[in-house]
Nucleic acid binder design. Structure first.
Lengths: 134, 134
DNA sequence: TTTTAGAATTAGAATTATTCTAAATCTAAC
DNA sequence: GTTAGATTTAGAATAATTCTAATTCTAAAA
């Protein structure tokens, strides 16, 4: 399920297309700076401000998500589907997970907060396999 | 349960004590800047760097938590007990919630990520009551 | 086609957030 | 009281993000 829309079909400007492509093709979660570097190699005239503008645009349009854990810069995530994150408190490694939340947990959260729910996600903090055996 | 330790019993320096007190007494989640302003009124000689150092120290010691949602500065939370957050996607309002996660969800997350679990939390995003009726 | 209005992009400056540095001060063990 | 190590201070430095103003692009109207 959750087939990812083809980039060409989204009616984006060339710059926004490149930014989205960079994020989708990355095998890690990139910072704005890294997105800029990679975008620049695909479209050398692109400017830093445009990368930030595009990131905001793509985020608002729901094509990407911004993740931020209070350590340095925000990172960006190609939202192909809802998912959760695990973050290493030692090295900062970020891993995607897919965890199904029981309906009663989601309902309870929405009800308790009185918020109109848009999304809900789990964040696990701990030591990644690498850091835990050192 | 979860009685909050008395600040005086933690063996903190005066500066760290003040920072912790400010965070505990705030009725909102403050930014580092706001913590600095309030700390300064209690202890006028405190410096900005010390506030940041203290925040890091208190965070590492588990007395406070840093929350960060990719919009502006990090905010700090007096961790009296484990809890979750709801954040308004429109106005940024941040609300604490206490939601009990089923054991199997926690176990699944730990198992899936292969991380040595330290904490796990839920983040709900949506419109706060105020923003949803406009 | 031109014109035009609005949106997007660019380059670089400006702002905001956070960390670093080096000197001064405090603290607790000797 | 000395001393070593940790902490604090002030301000500089760096990093992250946003703003500004000039330019370019785009698509619809004339």
């Amino acid at each position: 399920m959750s087939v990812t829309a083809d980039i060409k079909d989204l009616g984006l400007t060339k710059q926004r297309e490149v930014v989205l492509q960079v994020i989708r093709e990355a095998d890690e979660h990139l910072t704005a700076n890294e997105v800029f570097d990679k975008s620049k190699s695909l479209l050398p005239t692109i400017s830093f401000a445009t990368v930030y503008n595009s990131l905001r645009y793509l985020k608002d349009a729901g094509h990407i998500a911004e993740i931020s854990f209070g350590n340095g810069a925000s990172r960006f995530d190609a939202m192909t589907s809802r998912h959760d994150h695990a973050i290493c408190t030692k090295c900062g490694k970020l891993v995607d997970m897919e965890i199904e939340l029981p309906k009663e947990v989601v309902d309870f959260a929405a009800c308790f907060s009185k918020f109109k729910l848009e999304s809900i996600e789990l964040t696990l903090r701990g030591l990644c396999p690498n850091c835990s055996n050192t």
